[in-house]
Design a protein around this nucleic acid. Structure first.
Lengths: 199, 199, 199, 199
DNA sequence: GATGAATGAGTCTTCATTCAT
DNA sequence: AATGAATGAAGACTCATTCAT
């Protein structure tokens, strides 16, 4: 169905993706209207359905696309020799910030997907936002457990960090719409964890 | 508008509240159809609007009701002399479990409300789910900071605990629909925090 | 169905009639809501239907009642020896004003009935408002044609007068809600007709 | 909102306008169901709202359209040198008859609009039906007062004529649905007025 | 008699999706 | 490929009418 889409110019593809990303991220699956997406993406109603067939397919497409993009980019320039877990976390977050340049609503959309309650796409949404997260966790796992305090295992430290981050982002994305600010605001919490979890 | 509602028998009130709670929790505000709520609650279409006038009013009613109920019940039997933060957390979570007997979807609904993206009710939803959370935090604040490790303050410990819990619940409520299981599953994470944050 | 109604005290009957008259006159048949009528008449929903069975019957009841009342009262104190058509017209209009004391919306309602477009009651409404008018015309016919100018017959003069009056009232009842003012405002036009139609 | 509408073929536009005109004229604003209008106009439910957004906008559109059309057509071929008021009246009425060819319910609708009681559109309805009438009156005012009897002014003669016509039409449109017959039936009354008001 | 809670058919309106051009 | 007019099923909400108390 959407091979046709890939034959478009990269620019046009990105315009359409960003349009969908923005509206889906802000409104959630159900309330996002194809009329608005189409206006935002600068294309006609018919074309949207020509490429994607239906709204669900469009949602799943940008969902998978976003997840895969983040999975590709999240590991950029992260040296293996950086052994401190919390420094690695800071590096992955930095990479997310860089992605905003091309897809400003990508992270916001992925968070909103992890919160999606609409039964139509709930499962798919969870699967991909989870997958994107898991790749990130893999990178964190390469940290050195020996640096951690007492009897804390690396998995435990990561669990806590990830839960905190998810809790924080869920809360913040509702409060402010600026992706960059949200990403930056987590650093203080990261410091607390570092202070208490690293020897 | 809903004084009439309070004149019904407690049983009937609860049936209607639980019906709305269940559908709103599962589907979110927008997708929750009044048709389905009405079927779930075992009443007619007209009656719903007789009592609540419109869908938004119904949502806000169960929202405020749930938040107030949790705010009343969350502090039951929590002794002041329990000084360990994480033991206090376990007690509040235990109280939430007790609430499930009467309103199985109450906690689930309050979580979904904190994630609500529909602009129609977003603000109200955040306000009340926040308020319910805040009362819980107040109870935690009565813990003794002296029991905490190193330079960790009580506010920092609570921040981290709350972020973890939110992150955990957001993740879990999507994965499994059984409120009791979700509530219980957080205990291991609580243990990790206790082990590392208490001297 | 509405024999029961006649067993009520005259006072109570009139309160209910005036409530219905007011709402039907202002809103027309369809838009007049039984909820509002019931409030205006100071009775319960159930009672309205106990007495009248349905909205249409209620409408037809107050319609017939109003028409019959006007037919009874319109001829009061009109001496046979008054021979000038236009003086007779002024007398019938004076009688209508007197009716307002008991049923303030009676004339207004009868006018609105003559304009009713709702197919449910259109025919009945026309029939009775017409009938009330006809009685009035009978009284006018007892005027002396010899007083009229040139070759003008009494029927022609009455036709023109009645058309003018209907046209005037239809226009005015929309513009101002005060029945007394409306009734009085026709007098200048009556003068013009008198000046030109009487020798 | 309704620029789109004007891009349709004139034929299609007129079919839709005539459908709305017919139902609104017969049933009034409130009772006219969009379902019926849609069937009458031979279009789908969605399309109606695609063009007009809501029922009120549709009503106001055909209202303004009808009024403007009548204001344009009412003056056709009326020579300035015709000085007799009642001949001028006959000419404007003749023009209305010609309009029926294209919009059979136009005059009927405009009359019903002048009687509209639904508060949603009452004001607008009165404004435009009034405006259409006023243009007609302007044309009548160009008649020669010197032809009138005695001390009758041109304004008085017009007032009486207009009141008669309104009274007549209100009465007749209820009795028979054939616009052409209604329009023609006024001529006898016009003759009476002419005989008595012209020297 | 009197009440008002309860019903459900009917109304306006939205929106994903189709299709002729 | 690209458009946007056209569709109709589904949703929120209204209101005359019924009925248990």
């Amino acid at each position: 169905m959407n091979e046709k889409f890939y034959e478009l110019s990269k620019d046009k593809q990105d315009t359409m993706i960003n349009g969908a990303l923005k509206i889906f991220a802000r409104e959630g699956y159900q309330r996002a209207s194809t009329d608005v997406i189409v206006k935002e993406a600068g294309i006609s109603k018919g074309l949207l359905f020509h490429y994607f067939g239906n709204k669900k397919t469009l949602y799943c497409f940008v969902l998978e696309y976003s997840a895969r993009y983040q999975m590709m980019e999240i590991g950029r320039d992260i040296k293996e020799r950086e052994k401190n877990l919390f420094n690695r976390v800071r590096l992955t977050e930095g990479n997310k910030m860089r992605m905003l340049k091309r897809y400003p609503y990508l992270d916001l959309f992925l968070i909103s997907a992890s919160k999606e309650v609409d039964s139509e796409v709930e499962e798919e949404a969870r699967k991909w936002s989870q997958a994107a997260n898991d790749v990130c966790i893999e990178l964190w796992k390469m940290a050195d457990a020996a640096l951690l305090r007492g009897n804390l295992t690396i998995d435990e430290a990561i669990d806590i960090t990830m839960l905190c981050m998810e809790g924080y982002k869920n809360r913040m994305y509702n409060l402010c719409g600026d992706p960059e600010e949200v990403l930056g605001g987590f650093l203080p919490y990261l410091e607390i964890l570092k202070r208490n979890f690293i020897r």
